[in-house]
């Protein structure tokens, strides 16, 4: 054994050397590396989960936005329909009012026209009476007094066709 050099002291020293290297590598290499590996894999898992979450959230938000958009569109259409209805109603009302007003105006105009016609007729009558009186005066050369004359003519007129009203 001497030629190959087995020596228990050197053997012991190499055993101790192995122990030292084991300890060094364990605390300087394996432990931190393992921790980093675990941490990294955790981190990757977490970020993947996060990405999944974000994706989910995004799709949810998108859904929400789509819903909101649809609701808004529906609301807009409602408002539009309401506005159109209201416009129709207003138009109808305005038309009705206008018609009423027009009727009132027409009615007033008619009464005014009637009034004026009556007045005109009266005026014509009076003038005609005056004319007739003048004519009669001229005919009978003031044989009759004025009052008597008027009464006479009015009587005539009363009896005349279309005189009564």
């Amino acid at each position: 054994m001497g030629a190959i050099g087995i020596d228990w002291q050197v053997l012991l020293a190499q055993l101790i050397n192995f122990g030292i290297l084991f300890g060094l590598l364990f605390f300087l290499l394996y432990k931190p590396m393992r921790r980093t590996f675990d941490e990294r894999s955790n981190r990757i898992k977490e970020s993947m989960e996060q990405a999944e979450q974000i994706k989910e959230q995004m799709s949810r938000t998108e859904e929400q936005v789509r819903e909101q958009l649809a609701a808004a569109r529906r609301e807009g259409q409602d408002i539009l329909a309401q506005a159109a209805q209201m416009g129709d109603r207003l138009k109808e009302e305005a038309r009705g009012e206008a018609r009423q007003e027009a009727e009132v105006i027409v009615a007033r105009a008619r009464t005014e026209i009637e009034l004026e016609r009556d007045e005109a007729i009266d005026e014509v009558k009076r003038q005609f009476v005056d004319l007739a009186i003048t004519a009669a005066e001229k005919v009978v050369r003031e044989s009759l007094d004025r009052e008597k004359h008027r009464r006479l003519i009015e009587e005539v007129l009363e009896q005349a066709p279309g005189g009564e009203r």
Binding site: I4, G5, I6, D7, V10, L11, A13, Q14, L15, N17, F18
Partner: peptide
Amino acid sequence: ANTDVNFPLALAL
């Protein structure tokens, strides 16, 4: 150290 029989022997043990 590999060329000294004590080292491989230590590892083997």
